[in-house]
Design a binder for these strands. Structure first.
Lengths: 249, 249
DNA sequence: ACCTGAACACCGTTCAAGT
DNA sequence: ACCTGAACACCGTTCAAGT
């Protein structure tokens, strides 16, 4: 199947589901969730809407496939966890954090950080994962996330009756915190080209400090704590809090 | 059918921002997030789109107002008492303390249950709160939620450095679990009129038990635990896990 | 000040028709 | 089998015009 290497105004490679999903991820990453439209997709792929619908049932399925792909990559990059990708065991040998031989606690931290960073790279991912988690627990996404955390929970020695609770708390926290972090980055960028995350958090802290002292004593007092926190450190502190609860019970 | 004659009674009350927001909430509750359109709104309010735009800047602001209204009610009402009558819990601002007489732990459980049940009544609320929490921490929603939980965290004796972490974990878990529960209810209804939540959870459990034993050992084993769990009990177990971590540290 | 309703730009999706 | 592209129903939003 030697494809001609000549350049042409039209696309040279045949369309495929994979190419479409890749283009969707690219669009989501660069223009955001609202930027993924079939028109933008047809332009990028030099084709018509009908061609896309030949490979993909509808937009929901396309979003699902994009989510699954990015999630699988994020989980595979971490410790050797559950099903990486069906078929090929490629994974390019990455396994950056091969400290996976460590404790279950470290395993949970590693998976959490992997998801946290994946969401930082793909800000739309948090919303999408949350949606899939809630709307279709029978799909591929929910078991994959659940398993990636839950196997470490089990290794921790948590009694079986507590598995679901512990894994739920961890997963909800991880996705929530990751989504919030990603949004903070995006909001900072939106405020101006020179506004990075610390600058953005400072503006939020300032807003919180101006709240009514009568109604918002806690939030006002907690505002200053917003400023000088390392993303990862702050995120891991939340995980460790849950871990403390697990080993204390 | 009455053809072009306008059968709906002509509007007797003047339009107002409040009436529009109320109609939006009603639409969200009955037809879901996708059902809130300006056309449905104009029909329900017997007016034109221009009239709505006179009172409300755009759809985003309308959704925000709907979210704020329902959230304020949920925080003011607290959890529905077992038999008693809360009557009106005035609570201007953060107060939210219908169960304020008890321990801080009970306070957190009460606020959590209040949010959990509000999301159960308004399934769109979880997504909306998460969005607001992430996208605009300077808005009204974020401080209100944060305060409602955080003041009890402080009362717990948690050192100030841990306030943000603890409150974040609790809030993310509460919204995540509430959203998942609401989606489960909706999914059960969607599957059929006779399918309630237990039946739906059973079908999910069955799906999980058919996963590949090699790739999903944990999820398979945890599946059976899905079946016979009381909503509230299960939800509170997650909160208690975090509380255990707080008092252990 | 408040409301009307036609019009605009855009969206997801379909489908007869081509290769 | 795979792709084309016009067409359809619908959406959020605007705005000159009315009261």
């Amino acid at each position: 199947m030697a494809t001609s290497t000549r350049r042409s105004p039209r696309r040279t490679e045949a369309l495929s589901r994979e190419r479409i999903v890749d283009a969707a991820v690219e669009l989501l990453d660069t223009v955001g969730e609202g930027g993924l439209t079939f028109r933008a997709l047809t332009e990028r792929l030099a084709t018509g809407p009908g061609a896309i619908y030949w490979h993909v049932a509808n937009k929901e399925e396309l979003l699902g496939a994009a989510t699954e792909g990015v999630l699988a990559a994020a989980l595979a990059a971490g410790p050797p966890g559950p099903a990486g990708s069906p078929g090929s065991a490629a994974a390019s040998g990455g396994a950056s954090g091969s400290a996976s031989a460590g404790s279950p606690q470290d395993g949970i931290r590693a998976v959490g950080l992997g998801l946290f960073d994946a969401v930082g790279k793909h800000p739309w991912l948090a919303t999408q994962l949350t949606t899939q988690l809630a709307r279709s627990p029978w799909g591929a996404v929910t078991p994959r996330i659940f398993e990636s955390i839950g196997r470490h929970v089990r290794a921790l020695g948590v009694p079986e009756a507590g598995w679901f609770t512990a894994t739920s708390v961890l997963v909800h926290y991880i996705l929530g915190a990751a989504g919030q972090n990603a949004a903070n980055i995006a909001s900072g960028r939106a405020l101006g080209p020179g506004v990075d995350r610390p600058a953005f958090l400072d503006s939020v802290a300032r807003a919180w400090e101006e709240l009514d002292p009568e109604d918002y004593p806690f939030t006002r007092a907690a505002a200053s704590g917003l400023r000088d926190h390392d993303d990862h450190e702050q995120f891991l502190a939340g995980i460790d809090l849950v871990l403390a609860g697990l080993t204390a019970g």
